[in-house]
Design a protein around this nucleic acid. Sequence first.
DNA 1: GTGAAAGCGCTAACAG
DNA 2: CTGTTAGCGCTTTCAC
Lengths: 355, 355
Amino acid sequence: MADRMADGTTDRLARSLGRSPAVPPTLADVAERAGVSRQTVSNAVNNPDLLRADTLARVQEAIDDLGYSPNRAARNLRTRASHLIGMRINPAQEGTANATMDRFVHSLVETSGEAGYHVLLFAGTHQDPLEGYDDLLRSTAVDAFVVTDTYLGNPQAAWLESRRAPFVAFGRPWDNPAATHPWVDVDGAAGAELATTHLLDRGHRRIAWIGWRKDSFIGEDRRAGWSRALRSRDLPTTGLASRVEDTVASGREASAVLLDEAQPTGFVCASDTLAMGVLHTLAQRGLVPGRDVAVVGFDDSQVAQVVPPGLTSVRQPLEDVAVGIVKALEDILNHPSRPPGGVLLTPTLAVRGSS
Amino acid sequence: MADRMADGTTDRLARSLGRSPAVPPTLADVAERAGVSRQTVSNAVNNPDLLRADTLARVQEAIDDLGYSPNRAARNLRTRASHLIGMRINPAQEGTANATMDRFVHSLVETSGEAGYHVLLFAGTHQDPLEGYDDLLRSTAVDAFVVTDTYLGNPQAAWLESRRAPFVAFGRPWDNPAATHPWVDVDGAAGAELATTHLLDRGHRRIAWIGWRKDSFIGEDRRAGWSRALRSRDLPTTGLASRVEDTVASGREASAVLLDEAQPTGFVCASDTLAMGVLHTLAQRGLVPGRDVAVVGFDDSQVAQVVPPGLTSVRQPLEDVAVGIVKALEDILNHPSRPPGGVLLTPTLAVRGSS
DNA sequence: GTGAAAGCGCTAACAG
DNA sequence: CTGTTAGCGCTTTCAC
């Protein structure tokens, strides 16, 4: 011990000769300065209640003077926790209006930061949905994952469950009702119903739907909201729906066909991308959105916000999603026994010039 | 040592009774299974050349069997490196077309992943530009930072330099030519010149500029490209430039005034957000972008890509920026002595219907 | 309330 | 080429 102290002091000396905190101070440095043991400093940081007020003050002063912050690696090693949340991001989709995930990342970073967690991003490809998770898990680099693309029917959830890895999903376990992980999702049917009802309130009676292919759970969910709203007023849906790929071109083509064959006065779309396709068709035909034909998108992307004359769009409460996910994360991390549940949030409608 | 071995064996037993890799295997587990020392396993992972081929194969087999991956916390503690790159993200800007940073994050995550680094995101506010950096630095949570909003004249760069913290900036040190940190940037003047020349080639002679306020280094740089292109052909710039805030409304108002007072046939804008403002004005006046008036934006946002009839826009090579930044990061981390430099990349033009 | 001892899992340095 | 020793900085018992 005496040896170590001596070495420590020498280190201090060497460090103070250097310019800046190139080598950060350690617990031992603080202890020495405050004239207490290392454990006392640790307690001052982690269990301040255990210290006498005057001791705490003295230690705190030393901490401030030295600019001490506990070394994460050491703490992580000891506590077997990294306070890092892993999240995989897929390549950015160009040529679409989709930016939900980017907006969500912002919310997640802010919310988890308040809870003392940082977000670790890793890359993934659509080819191998499991890529990246395994390594991070085995090397105990993260405490938990946030899984976001459950809608693809991806196997991450099942795989993570089998590895007993803590995670929370943004999105319901559509294809696995027996799933036991916590999740947070937004009620897409309610969103589409909100959008459709909005158009009904504006006097529209023939309202078309442009959505995704039938194998998309989310797409079918949103579509159900549209048909529910129309049926509740005994209005027709036949011939008014189209299921296409999520591209601007598909939205453009689908809306052209619908306009010709079904004469709708309004469109509700499963995404802003598809809604932009509708705007393309209207522009081509010299029709003015909001005056001649009403259009509503989904996700309230930046595109919806800035395109003239403004695209009315269903807005997912991503901030609340992040809050719910972080809450669920803390739950499973701190109370592993507690049974996990799901949370379904309700979207709102951002009304703009297109309706 | 014998004690420890015995304990280790007991641990193994306990673990194997559990279902899954709830407790990941350690170096010692692999060593025991392969019948070698722990150090040999470490070498197999980090310096495979040091091992004889047959030993390596045996160790590798044990590693695979056990699904071993080195514990990051332990490795980080020992090597004093986290292989984490910190990056601060500001709150998402709603109501604008700006998404450069989101696109950049994707590229950075992918590129740094290939180099063995993960990206740690932390939140920040415009209020305190230093918030978050200090703690991460002192707790040695990250090996380096990527600083992105140098354009605000923010003090991070100077502060990080004074703390001798490794970092690379996306953006030139405009306000500090003496800066000694590496940086990567995109030549905004070249981009605006490219855009302006494009309109000149299409026959336009009166080309207006809508840019940012004079205190924006980036804005002035881009503006210089516009005026350079016009002056080189002896064309007028007087009365054709406007400096406003980066909002759609400002772009709308500025373009309306310019249209009335200077009769431009084309607009080059410092951002897609401003360009969208121009599209608003055109829509209001029944003018068709690309036919009646040409518009070019900056950043090639999703908005530019999907808005009818497509917004021509200067595209920053963010993938190359990320590659350059990661390269610089590896340089300063592995060769701290090597003098850092700056890299200036040239943007391209994505031509669409608006021109 | 405070202090001493132990050890998380790994790798750098050296010994064989 | 392989094994032994030591210790990164911290927190968790457990004495005092």
